[in-house]
């Protein structure tokens, strides 16, 4: 279980998070929602150790990981699919996957398994990552994170700007991982998508966690959406 409690963080002197707390449980999809600038992406980066925390802790199954050097965090099998995909664009598809495999010293078996999930990538192994289509790039970004055999998977708007069939494919992968017991933390803007797959929703407002509700409770009280998202 990934527990984020009361973290304060930001970029240099610009503080973005003023006490955000959330929990990602194994076998559940926790969605993070909030308006633009509420701190969703910042929270993800802070969990990965990419931003310094001035207060608060991040812990995984009781171990505090927010005091580790940033490159040690992924060794705990936390996979990250960042916003905007952020592939190693000069590297080939195979090399991008190789970097993912190196993180937790995974081998051939994992590689084959990941490529079976995304057969399109297998056809393009030697192509440079930046020459892939948007959907294929998203597949690769997801595949790269799956190479860690993650216990926790962070996905930051994985369906942004994709065609419906691709969104469905990504959704399938997320649901399968959840069923395998992975704790999933998903940043998502589209309300219908969240209602369809989330187990729990945490709302961020101005860098603080405002509310955490189950998806059933959210369906029952639609004015929550209006209050935190303005929709």
């Amino acid at each position: 279980m990934l527990e984020v409690s009361n973290i304060h963080s930001g970029y240099g002197r610009v503080q973005i998070l003023f006490g955000a707390s959330l929990t990602a449980r194994p076998g559940e999809i926790t969605c993070v929602m909030g308006r633009n600038g509420a701190g969703k992406t910042t929270a993800m980066k802070a969990i990965m150790g990419l931003l310094p925390l001035s207060q608060g802790t991040v812990s995984l199954d009781g171990e505090i990981i927010s005091t580790l050097p940033a490159h040690e965090v992924p060794h705990r099998r936390i996979g990250y699919v960042p916003q905007g995909r952020r592939l190693f664009s000069d590297l080939s598809v195979a090399e991008n996957i190789e970097v993912g495999l190196m993180t937790c010293k995974e081998g051939r078996a994992t590689r084959d398994e990941v490529l079976d999930i995304f057969p399109r990538l297998r056809e393009r192994l030697h192509q440079r990552a930046e020459t892939l289509s948007g959907g294929e790039q998203q597949m690769l970004a997801t595949a790269r994170a799956l190479c860690l055999r993650p216990r926790v998977l962070l996905l930051d708007e994985p369906t942004e700007g994709l065609q419906p069939s691709m969104i469905e494919a990504i959704r399938q992968v997320i649901v399968t991982l959840r069923d395998q017991g992975v704790a999933i933390l998903l940043v998502e803007q589209r309300v219908d998508a969240v209602l369809a797959i989330a187990d729990r929703v945490t709302f961020l407002e101005n860098g603080r966690s405002a509310d955490t509700v189950t998806v059933d409770a959210l369906r029952a009280t639609p004015d929550l959406m209006h209050r935190y998202l303005g929709v």
Partner: peptide
């Protein structure tokens, strides 16, 4: 080369 392409993502993948 991964570090050259994207320093932050390299860190996020344990480099």
């Amino acid at each position: 080369r991964a570090t050259q392409a994207d320093r932050e993502m390299a860190t996020a993948f344990g480099i």
